[in-house]
């Protein structure tokens, strides 16, 4: 392999890493919102992402009967439409199950209340995964769009030697994901809802005394968090085939990103997710394809081991 080839491979992997990384970043923002507001590790986040993928697939099927052709916008409309659908699912799951072990009620539980939440979401993850198998079947499906088989060629550069192909479908997905993240940041900082959520996150008890319905804030944060990740899933769905177990792979991807950025920090989560996307794609340069995810796990372990409290966490021991 000559130098030009090497450079081309590197640039190609870099491009792919940024394009998937932006979508991972969006997914991580959703997870981070839930942890930031509720202090709950949501194990089922990957499975809500799976719901988002199938929701987008379902809407796409309505927009484009027959499964191919149609407007180039259809997959993106479908991905955005997945948001409200997953939001409703998230709100219901929170109201019926999660709220019983979190928030003020969670504090009243014994010392294991902490783990009760984690394990409850594990149960929800199992139900969604395996329920999904029943509802959607085990055959992988995908959203095919004309854009995802076209690419723009950047170059040729450096005297006709190097050229990079940017998949049009992925690029549009990444742009939409970036806009969604920006929109979310504006919403959190400017709107009344965002302020209520941040207050509830900062000090639930004080927020309660200030007349903020913390239970409702948690419900909205949970619904919102899974919906954001669901949209991310919908955007991924147009370039990757998926099946009901897909969430498991991404739950580690998301946690790696969120932990990298510091648990609870929204902007940190985005850049964490972006980094994970880069790690995943760049690892293909020197690792076999199957070990992509192993590379992520190793990076994840390295992060948590080198910085046990997360990158922005503080180490405080109390007696």
């Amino acid at each position: 392999m000559n130098g030009a080839q090497l450079a081309e491979n590197f640039l190609q992997a870099l491009t792919a890493g940024i394009l998937t990384g932006v979508i991972y970043g969006l997914m991580c923002v959703g997870l981070s919102l839930i942890f930031g507001v509720m202090r709950v590790i949501n194990f089922a986040q990957g499975d809500f992402m799976m719901l988002g993928m199938y929701a987008a697939w379902f809407v796409f099927g309505l927009l484009v009967p027959g499964g191919s052709g149609g407007s180039v916008f259809a997959p993106y409309i479908a991905a955005l439409a997945a948001g409200p659908m997953v939001f409703v699912a998230g709100v219901l799951v929170h109201k019926l199950l999660v709220s019983r072990v979190t928030g003020m009620r969670g504090n009243a539980l014994e010392s294991e209340g902490h783990y009760a939440q984690l394990i409850l979401t594990l149960g929800i993850a199992l139900i969604l995964q395996n329920g999904g198998l029943f509802v959607f079947g085990s055959q992988p499906v995908s959203i095919s769009t004309p854009l995802s088989s076209n690419a723009w060629e950047v170059g040729p550069l450096y005297g006709e030697l190097v050229s990079v192909f940017v998949n049009q479908g992925q690029l549009v997905s990444a742009v939409i994901a970036a806009i969604a993240v920006l929109g979310f940041v504006v919403l959190m900082n400017r709107s009344r809802l965002g302020k209520a959520l941040r207050a509830a996150a900062d000090n639930p008890e004080a927020a309660l005394y200030m007349g903020i319905d913390v239970e409702r804030a948690h419900r909205i944060a949970f619904g919102f968090g899974v919906a954001i990740t669901g949209v991310g899933g919908g955007l991924l769905a147009s370039s990757y085939p998926f099946q009901p177990y897909v969430g498991l792979e991404y739950v580690i991807v998301m946690y790696a990103g969120v932990v990298l950025g510091g648990l609870g920090s929204v902007s940190g989560a985005f850049f964490g997710g972006l980094t994970i996307g880069l790690v995943q794609q760049l690892s293909t340069l020197f690792l076999p394809q199957q070990l992509q995810n192993t590379a992520i796990f190793v990076v994840f372990l390295a992060i948590v081991l080198v910085r046990p409290q997360g990158l922005f966490g503080r180490a405080v021991r109390r007696a």
Binding site: I119, G123, A125, L126, I127, Q129, N130, G131, F134, P244
Partner: peptide
């Protein structure tokens, strides 16, 4: 009902 085993464990733990 494929996946019923996982559902059983999920429901049990919830």
């Amino acid at each position: 009902v494929p996946g019923i085993q996982g559902v059983v464990y999920g429901v049990a733990i919830v």
